[in-house]
Write a protein that binds this DNA or RNA. Sequence first.
DNA 1: TTGTGGTGT
Length: 796
Amino acid sequence: MNIQSGKGVRRNRSELFAQEEQSDSEENNVPPVTEVTPREEEQEQEHEQEQQDHRPMKKSRHNQYKSNRTEYEYALPEEQSKKSLLRNNKSTANTSWEVEQFNKASQLPLSNEDKIIENNADDYEFVFDETQFVNYDDPDILSGDEEQESLDLTSAFNNEIAELRKNLPVYNYRADFLTTLENNQVLIVVGETGSGKTTQLPQYLYEAGYSQNNLAIACTQPRRVAATSIAARVAYEMNVKLGHEVGYTIRFDDKSSKDTVIKYVTDGMLLREFLTDPQLSHYSAIMIDEAHERTISTEILLGLLKDIIVTRPQLKIIIASATINAEKFSQFFNNAPILNIPGRRFPVKIHYTKSPEANYIQAALTTIFQIHTTQPEGDILVFLTGQEEIETMEEALQDSIGKLGDQIEPMLVCSIYANMASEVQSKIFNKPPPGTRKVVLATNIAETSITIDGIKYVVDPGYVKQNKYNPATSMESLVVVPCSRASADQRAGRAGRVGPGKCFRLFTKWCFYNELDANPTPEILRTNLTSVILLLLSLGINDLLKFPFMDPPSKQSIIKSLELLYALGALNSKGKLTKTGQKMTEFPLDPILTKCILMSSKFGVTIQICCIIAMISESSNLFYRPKGKAELADARKAQLHHQLGDHFTLLNVWRTWKDYGYSKEWCRDCFINYKTLQRSKNVYDQLIRLCKKVGLIDSVQETRGDDEDRMIQKALLSGFFMNVCRLSRMGDGYVKLKGSTSGCFIHPSSALYKTKPKLVIYYELVLTSKEYMRCCSIVDDKLVREMAGHYYASKG
DNA sequence: TTGTGGTGT
C-alpha cells in the first residue's frame, strides 16, 4: 500500500475532507487490525490528483466568475443511473438501508427542470458588494466552476455503490470480526457512517451461534428512535416479526419476548437492567453503539462492564464508536484490539475563513447568500446555538429575501429546535418546490438526532450552547462555547449524505486545529451526579472513588452528591443505603424528586405530587412562544397561572388537560407542547405504578382536602428544603437562605415573576443571562421551620 | 423579561 505518497498529496492540499482527516489520524495513532484496502487508497489518490489539476485553472478564473457563469447543469451520466437502478432491483434482504439511500441519491431525477439558471450577473453587482463577502481561505471555492469535479465524484461513488450492493463495507470484515472476538473478550469497532455495523454486527453474532443456550445479544443506542427503527430494519432483514427473534426495549415501549435473541435497547435501559440482573446473565454479547457520544448511561455501562467481564469470561463486549478516539476505549479495556471498518459517505469539502469572524450571525447570513447565488442546487443547513438566535436569523433572512425579491432564486427558510411545536417541526422534512432552495436553521438537534434529506451545504459558526453543572453552587449554567473538532466534523458530515457536499466553517483553519478541543466534554463531567451515585450504591459499589470511570468526575462532585443523599435520608451515617434509599432506586427520577413523592403519602397528596413531578423535569419546554404570537401565548398561559406559583400551575395544566379529555386541540389553543404533556402522562402512569409497588398508595382515588395546597407545599419542601430563597431587602434579587449568597432572580416564565413573594422554593437554578430560579412557588416561614428546620438549624 | 440535546421496567 502506497501510504507514503498518499500522505504527500494530502499535505499539499489546502483543503481536506473531514473524513479523510479522521482516517489519517487513525492510521497514525491506532494499530488497526485491518486497514483501508489498496483499491480505495488508489481511488482517493486519483480523486486528489484531480483536484490538484483543477486548482491552477480555478485560480486564474478568480474574480471573473460573474462573466463566465451564466448557466450550468447538474446531472448524472444516464448510464450510471440505470446501472444502479438495476442493482437496486437485485437487492437482497441482507443489504442495509444505507445502500438504498445511496442508490436513491444516484437516481435523483435530474432533468432539465433541475438546471440551475443563474441570474444576470449585473444583478449581483446591485445586490451584493463583494468586499462584504465572507473571506474564505480558498478564494475559488465559491466560483462555482466545479461541475466537472462533482460529476466525476458521483461516478466514483456509483462505482462504490456497486461494491456496496454486493457487500456492505462491514461484510468484508465479518471473518476478522468473529475471529478477533473469539480470541478476545472485548473488541473496539471503529465503524464510520454507512459501514452497516449497527445492523450487521449483531446479526453476525447471531449467525455465529452466540444466541445459543437461551442467551441473547444486546445492542445499546443513546436514542429511542434509533433503537426502534434499527430493530425494525434488522427484523426485516432477517425476515422475522419485530418483537419475536429481533426486538427492542425502551422506556414505555417493549417489543421483545422470550424468543428475542437480538435486542436493541437504550443505554439507560440496559443500565436499569443491572438493577435486577447485576451479571447481565441473560446476554452472551453486548454491543455498546455510538460509544463516542459518551452519554452518562454509556459511561456507567462501560465501567460496570469492565467489572463483570472478570466474573463472566464468556461474555463478549463490542464497543462501537464512530470517531478517532478508539484508542481511549482500547486502553480502558486493557488494550483491547481495534477493528477499523471504513464508512461509505460522500466527500465533504471543508472551507475555513481566512480571518476570524467577529459577528458569526452576520457571517452566516452572508455565507447563505453567497452559497445561494453561486452554488448549484442543494439545501443549506446552518448550525446555530438556540431558539433566539434561530429566530433572529430567520427574521434577517426573510427580510433580505423580501428586499431582494425576484433578483434571486426562491429560497425557503425553515427552522428546527427541540422546543418547537411538532406540527411546525415537520416542515423541515418537506421537499421544497423545484428551483427553490431550502435553508434549514437548526440547533445541535440536527447534529445527531435528526437527519434532513437533501442537505448539500453546511454553514458552521462553530459554537454550541452547553449545560454545565457546578456542584459547589448546585447551579447549572447554559453558555455558548466553541464546539469541538469532533462536533465540527460531525456537522460537516451532514452535507455528504446525498452527494458530495461542502461545509463552510466560520472560523480559521488555525483555530480548528489550535483552539478547539478534540472532543466535547463528556457529559458525566457536566452534570449533577446524584441519581448516578444512588444507582451505583444500590448496585453495591461502595467505593465510588475507585469506580472505573473513563473520565472520573471530581471528588468534590461525588462528595456533594453523597452529602445530598445523606440529607435526603437515602444514606445512613456510615454511608450505607437506607430503606428510603432502596425505595428511591425504584424511581427513575432525581432523588430529590423521589423524596417528595415518598413524603407525599404522609400529607395525603401523592397523586398531586406525582402529577407535578411528572411534569417538572419537562416544564421548561411545556409552553412554547412563537415569535409574532408571543403576547397571545403569554396571555393564554397567564390564564392557567396559579397564585401560589409554578408547581401549582403545572397541576392546573394537568387537571385542565384531563378535563378536556387529554385534548390535542386544547394544547394548541394554550400554546402547550402536546408531546411534552403526553410524555408527562406516561411518566405519571409509571410513577403511580411504582407508588403502588412500594406501598405508598393503594388506589388512584385523589383526595382533595381544604388544606391541599399547604400539604403540597409541605411535600415539596421535604425534598427541596435546601432550595429556599428570600427576597433581598435591597432590591428585586433573591438570596438563598443557606449557602451561596449571590443574588438570583425569578425566571421571567414564572407565574411569580411579577408578584415577587418574600419567600420562594425553586426547582432549579440556571445561569443564562442572569442567575434564574426556574419553577418557583410560594412558601412561608412557618412551613420552612416545620419542614426544613433540621437543615436551617445548623450554621450557615 | 426567557430554556443546547438526550435518557430512565
